[in-house]
Amino acid sequence: MIMILNAILVLVILINLFALGTSRMKALIHAAALQGVLLGLLPPLVVKDVGTLPLLMAVMTILLKGIVIPNMLLKALRDAQVKREVEPLIGFMPSILLGAVATAVALALAGHLAPPHSPLGLLVIPTSISMLCTGFLLLTTRVKAVTQVIGFLLLENGIFVFGLLLLSAIPYLVELGVLLDLFVGIFVISIIIHHINRAFASQDTSRLSSLKG
């Protein structure tokens, strides 16, 4: 069980690095979708007795993060007719390096961070931290709205992974509620992207500064 879990987590980290390095938005969305599907497999893996709730959670996660949200983003992409992230505030290569450094630091600290007697192995917390860092990097260095949404998505994925540790303590209802929030949030953002694009012919968030007082 731990083997499969660790394998999935390693894949997730690789997807993070890929997300930091790519400039094509379509590939970015596909990577996020794949990551969502992988995360959806996790809840039934980590609980002892697989009941309805973990399965429901898995299905909902795969459905929303793997299919619905990526499709909404792809549609927003088509509407807005953007293909590439140009002029990021930090280049793609340095982004990958920063992400790698963050992951390495998280892994190095893994021994200190793991909760005592955790049955899930050492990899969960470093993966979660690595995903949080990736999300923040995307959010702070990219300018296109769709990329920002992906950054937000990765950030939330990191929290999701962290939540695995607490699955017995936090009711599933809370997790599902978070999922619903995420969905609504991205739904609203994609509508906004659509409308901003129609009104201003650009969705470059760095141009939003004209609202500054």
Binding site: F136, T140, T141, R142, V143, Q148, T205, S209, L211
Partner: peptide
């Protein structure tokens, strides 16, 4: 500090 860019604000939060 009020740069008007979302990227900056997220960085401030961090």
């Amino acid at each position: 500090f009020q740069r008007g860019s979302i990227q900056n604000y997220i960085f401030y939060m961090l």
